Lab assay of single mutants.
Amino acid sequence: MTLTLTVPPGAKVRVRITNENGETTEIEVEPGETVTITLPAGSTVRVEVEVVDPDGRKRTETFTLKP
Rank of each mutant, 00 (worst) to 15 (best):
G42E: 10
I37P: 03
P40C: 15
F63A: 13
T18E: 10
G10H: 05
T2C: 14
K66S: 15
I17Y: 15
T34Y: 13
P8S: 11
K58F: 02
T24R: 07
L39S: 09
I17N: 10
I17L: 10
E48P: 00
P40N: 12
L3Q: 01
K66H: 13
T60F: 06
N19C: 12
T25E: 07
I17K: 07
A41D: 07
P31I: 15
R14W: 10
E20A: 05
E50W: 01
M1I: 09
V52Q: 05
P67L: 15
K58S: 05
T4N: 04
L5C: 11
V35L: 07
V15W: 07
E28N: 08
R59F: 10
L65Q: 00
G56M: 00
D53K: 00
L5Y: 06
V29T: 11
G10L: 11
E23R: 07
N21V: 07
V35D: 03
D53Q: 03
D55S: 04
A11C: 03
P40V: 14
I27Q: 10
G42Y: 11
R14N: 06
P54H: 05
V45K: 02
P40L: 14
N19M: 11
T62C: 15
L39H: 04
T24A: 11
L3G: 02
K12T: 11
E20C: 14
V49S: 00
V7Q: 03
V51F: 11
I17P: 02
R57V: 07
A11D: 03
P31M: 10
T62P: 00
E23W: 13
G56P: 00
T44R: 03
E48G: 01
T18W: 13
R16L: 04
V52P: 00
T25D: 05
T25R: 08
G32Q: 13
P67W: 15
D55V: 01
T64H: 04
E28G: 12
V29P: 13
V35P: 08
G10C: 10
P54W: 05
G56Q: 00
V45I: 07
R57M: 03
G32F: 12
V51N: 01
G42T: 14
K66P: 15
A11K: 01
P9W: 11
N19S: 09
G56A: 00
R57W: 02
T2N: 04
T2W: 15
R57L: 03
E33D: 10
G56C: 00
G32L: 07
I17W: 14
P54L: 06
R57N: 08
E50V: 02
E30D: 07
G42F: 12
G32T: 13
T60K: 03
V15S: 03
D53V: 00
F63H: 11
R46H: 05
D55K: 01
M1Q: 02
S43E: 15
L65V: 12
T25W: 11
V35W: 14
L65C: 15
P40S: 13
D53L: 14
T60W: 12
E30P: 06
N19F: 12
T36A: 08
S43Q: 15
T38G: 09
G10D: 04
N19A: 09
E20R: 08
E20P: 05
V45G: 08
E33F: 12
V51E: 00
V52Y: 03
T18R: 05
E50R: 01
P8E: 13
E61G: 01
E33H: 10
T38K: 05
V13H: 00
E23V: 09
I17Q: 08
V47Q: 00
T62N: 01
V13P: 07
T6K: 08
V7E: 13
G10N: 09
T64E: 15
T44C: 14
D55H: 02
P9M: 06
R59N: 01
G42W: 14
V49Y: 01
V29Q: 13
R16E: 03
R14M: 12
T62G: 03
P54F: 09
V49W: 01
T44V: 07
E20F: 07
M1T: 03
K12Y: 09
P9E: 07
E61S: 06
P9Q: 07
R14V: 08
L65E: 01
P9R: 10
E26F: 04
D55C: 15
K58H: 03
T36Y: 13
D55E: 02
R59V: 05
T6L: 14
T38Y: 08
G22C: 14
T6H: 10
K58C: 05
V47T: 00
D53M: 15
G56R: 00
E33I: 10
G32N: 11
R16A: 05
G32W: 14
P9H: 08
L5W: 12
V47K: 00
G42R: 14
T38V: 08
N19V: 14
F63T: 15
I27D: 08
V13M: 06
I17A: 14
T44Y: 12
G32A: 13
V15K: 01
R46K: 06
R14A: 11
T25K: 08
T44F: 13
T38D: 07
L65W: 15
S43M: 14
E33G: 12
N19W: 13
V15P: 00
E61K: 05
I37E: 12
V52E: 13
L5E: 01
P31T: 09
T2K: 08
V45R: 06
E48I: 04
T44A: 08
R16N: 04
T64F: 15
D55F: 04
T38F: 13
T34I: 12
P8T: 13
R57S: 09
V47Y: 00
P54M: 06
K12W: 07
V45Q: 05
P8W: 14
V49D: 00
P31A: 06
E61H: 15
L39Q: 05
L39P: 08
I27R: 11
V45P: 02
V52R: 04
P9F: 09
N21W: 08
V45L: 13
V29M: 12
N19G: 10
T24N: 06
E20Y: 10
L39E: 08
V35C: 06
T6Y: 12
I37D: 05
V49A: 01
L39F: 13
V47I: 06
N21Y: 09
E33Y: 11
E20S: 05
V49E: 00
R16W: 13
V35N: 06
P40Y: 14
T24F: 07
D55Y: 06
I17E: 11
E28C: 04
N21P: 12
I27F: 11
L5T: 05
L5V: 05
K66M: 14
R57K: 09
L39A: 13
D53E: 04
F63C: 15
P9C: 06
G10V: 05
R59M: 02
G32D: 12
R46Y: 12
L65D: 01
K12I: 06
E20M: 05
R16Y: 05
F63P: 15
E23I: 09
E28L: 02
P31N: 10
T60D: 00
N21F: 07
V29G: 04
T4K: 07
T36M: 12
V45F: 12
G10P: 07
T34E: 07
V35Y: 14
V15E: 00
I27T: 06
E28I: 02
R14T: 11
R46A: 02
D53H: 04
T64Y: 15
P67G: 09
T24W: 07
